[in-house]
Design a protein around this nucleic acid. Structure first.
Lengths: 257, 257
DNA sequence: CAGTGGTCTAGACCACTCT
DNA sequence: GAGTGGTCTAGACCACTGT
């Protein structure tokens, strides 16, 4: 039997369109190339623009298309692998490599939720370092690194925002890292985050929550958000074998049988 | 040139709606409760139904709402933590715990992409075990575990689909696991996958690609997909400290400053 | 300026679930 | 059958980018 089950599957138009467009961009377009505009495509396929946009929304979510207002819709580059693990991002990314860029550092009492997550009394001050994760000159992620004051007792007095941030990171680095546990989930970027990521609000992001344990307590809690459209997070034991750049071929592998 | 122009931020209606609705479901509704229907909400807020739906789409993507056709829109339960690491999901999940359920197992030559990813010649047979990841009786993920024939040479002759699947897993378990590397990215569920996840096509999923290394080669490649709406993937060194159930409080922590 | 994607409207019909 | 979310239409205007 073929693909012709009809009984029960009235495939929505937008889903069919997505499939057709996906095939098209895979075979007829190169990375970075502009595809025809939405009104053109809609009329070409004989659907309303809203319906076509539904299909494009899907492909954008999959990281296959990028839409730029005033410009057009482009075929996206394969997602960039972003290493997320002690070795690469380390305690600090102390500036040795340019992977992280400190935005600022504020010291304040924790919110209730934060105090709970850090397992500290609400009265203890918390240093929050805001950083940007860079890939070359591209911002791909943001991070809020929350550090209880007691974990980094020896901070210098008068330095700027980023200066204190650097000090916090250096202090952390001196601690013996006993372990870390992570969680990854899907979220959307709100106003401030979206601005830092240079994306509109509502942009889907991968949210990574990391608890760093040292000296039998939680030494830091990092909440990082990465652009879901352009990032593939890699958790390498940096093992023997390189993670194959499955990238765009991933769909192939997923559906291979 | 500065990125800090503010001028005017004409916040879209749907984004404002999302914020309002989010506050409402946080304060006035309990998990599992149905919120007013879309037509009702749209007229209450004085917007078109399509605009309201845009706001609901966002909240659904964030895992805060669940929409059920014919029923209504419900406040979603906090995401369930799904452990993803050797200890918990092991080579096998050999059936000892009910976390995985084998669907079937097919043996066939690999696609070009798969052969490349496994670093084997295209002529070698590959066993592909399809499994479902369970949380209680809920299906939260699917997996295609690709194993080169040469990694599991001692398979029994005549057993059913799931029987061979079990054998493959058992064989893998006997290998010494040298390391594994993972990647996580956002994807959408296509037809077959969507069916297994009991969701419509296009459902956002977290795609986890794992390479298992043993005996200096790639012993297996797993491509797992987890429902992004209901899952929080945890990568525990199963360290000292439990990952705090930041869950719904995560937003708080993210925006805390 | 013209052209692009982003937002929004006011309808319509369909598929599904429950009673 | 009544009520829900899912899909789709044919328009409109806005915000942004290039020239």
């Amino acid at each position: 039997m073929g693909t012709t089950e009809q009984a029960t599957a009235p495939e929505p138009k937008y889903w069919h369109l997505r499939t057709v467009l996906l095939r098209a961009i895979d075979s007829e377009f190169a990375t970075g190339q502009v595809i025809p505009n939405e009104r053109e495509l809609a009329s070409r396929f004989g659907v309303a623009r809203a319906t076509l946009r539904q299909a494009l929304d899907q492909l954008e979510l999959e990281g296959r298309l990028v839409r730029r207002r005033g410009i057009g819709t482009l075929v996206a580059a394969p997602r960039t692998a972003v290493p997320v693990s002690p070795a690469e991002e380390g305690w600090p990314g102390t500036g040795r490599d340019a992977a992280w860029r400190i935005v600022d550092c504020v010291t304040a009492p924790p919110s209730a939720a934060l105090a709970r997550a850090l397992a500290i009394p609400a009265s203890e001050q918390v240093h929050t370092v805001r950083r940007l994760r860079m890939t070359g000159s591209q911002v791909v992620g943001t991070e809020a690194l929350h550090v209880p004051d007691s974990a980094v007792p020896h901070l210098p007095g008068f330095v700027g925002d980023t200066g204190r941030g650097r000090s916090v990171l250096r202090q952390l680095q001196r601690l013996e890292l006993a372990g870390e546990s992570r969680a990854v989930e899907l979220g959307v970027a709100e106003a401030e985050e979206a601005r830092l990521l240079e994306r509109p609000p509502g942009t889907p992001v991968l949210v990574v929550t990391t608890q760093y344990a040292a000296q039998g307590r939680i030494a830091a809690l990092a909440v990082s958000t990465y652009r879901a459209d352009t990032c593939r997070l890699t958790f390498g034991q940096t093992g023997l074998v390189e993670v194959a750049p499955v990238g765009a071929g991933l769909a192939e592998v997923r559906t291979a049988s």
